[in-house]
Design a protein around this nucleic acid. Structure first.
Length: 319
DNA sequence: GCGTCCAGGTCTACC
DNA sequence: GGTAGACCTGGACGC
């Protein structure tokens, strides 16, 4: 148990429009930092590692979509020095997509027959940024060759067995384990404990590679040329084209057999004969249609599927 | 109750 | 360079 008794507070002023609820919580329920975070009374309590510090985070909106302000309180074991506090402020702002300007994306989306619907529903939803690669990469590996329910069970077990419990303001939040922690686990132990099967080998290899500390951080990957960044991510164990597109801070178009069916219905108005065989075609058509905005298009559509189904009178659920 | 199939991919041996 | 087949596990399905 990590009791986080020290804290400091600051405010972030995101680029409007900015909808805090849609950005931090997402309609699909994708978590911001950990699936064990708590949302009560318009406040999000969560936890993550910020550089080497395990932090509890309390977030709430202190403004509106057109005049956004986000109130942030950071909890830690030790008092944070001024330079450390500045770094934390920068990282939280980045994680919340505070500096992202949606105007160019919205300009393109308004002329697109599919996106014009979703930007109204999700007006002000910014894309979030993963400060650390490890959780996203493990999630991508756990999504491979498994129904979503089983992926979620494997992920929950992984965090419960190996993650860190934080306690602050009476809340107990489980944070993802670090690569260093998992680098000391054996393939067999992980496979047996969390029933992750063959994925255990890739997860432990990934942790050992990241624990060395010489792999670029998310921020450094973002500074790279997008093609170079993807090439770098493909060097990680168990990370192929689909998984790299999930992790890539430049944003990819992570089409799998599930999303292939959804996007085929949107593009061609029909379900593919074989989802797996249609992946490449659907992916290429999406990239051609949306170019550098492919990830944002994917993100907005996936977050708005129930509304989009009604508006376009198409069943976009997987059958 | 039991056997078979396959799921929100990736890797590798083989041609 | 392209591709078939293996890979953990557990739920769905047919018998």
């Amino acid at each position: 148990m990590n009791r986080l008794t020290r804290s400091f507070e600051f405010q972030i002023t995101p680029v409007p429009p900015y909808n805090f609820d849609l950005t931090a919580r997402r309609p699909t329920g994708w978590s911001l930092f950990t699936p064990f975070e708590i949302y009560e009374n318009d406040i999000l309590w969560t936890a993550t590692h910020l550089d080497s510090t395990l932090a509890g985070i309390k977030l709430s909106s202190n403004g509106s979509v057109s005049n956004p302000k986000v109130l942030v309180r950071i909890f830690s074991r030790k008092e944070q020095k001024p330079d450390e506090q500045e770094n934390v402020k920068r990282l939280i702002g980045k994680a919340l997509g505070a500096d992202q300007d949606l105007s160019e994306f919205y300009g393109m989306a308004r002329k697109d027959s599919i996106l014009k619907h979703v930007i109204d529903d999700l007006y002000g939803m910014h894309d979030t940024f993963s400060i650390t690669i490890f959780p996203e990469a493990v999630l991508a590996i756990l999504l491979q060759m498994a129904p979503l329910k089983r992926s979620n069970e494997m992920m929950a077990c992984f965090i419960q067995k190996y993650g860190e419990v934080t306690e602050f303001e009476g809340k107990k939040i489980l944070a993802w384990p670090t690569p260093k922690r998992i680098s000391k686990v054996t393939d067999r132990e992980l496979a047996e404990n969390c029933k992750v099967g063959y994925r255990a080998k890739n997860i432990v290899s990934l942790a050992r590679k990241l624990a060395k500390g010489d792999f670029p951080t998310s921020e450094q990957i973002l500074e790279m040329d997008p093609d170079e960044a993807k090439k770098m991510l493909l060097e990680l164990p168990g990370i192929g084209d689909y998984s790299a597109d999930i992790i890539n801070p430049h944003g990819g178009f992570p089409i799998d057999v599930w999303s292939t069916e959804v996007f085929a219905k949107l593009f061609f108005d029909k379900k593919p004969h074989n989802n797996r065989e249609a992946v490449d075609k659907v992916k290429n058509d999406g990239l051609k249609r949306w170019g550098k905005w492919s990830w944002m298009a994917f993100y907005y559509i996936v977050q708005d599927l129930p509304n989009l189904s009604k508006k376009l009178k198409k069943d976009l659920r997987l059958s």
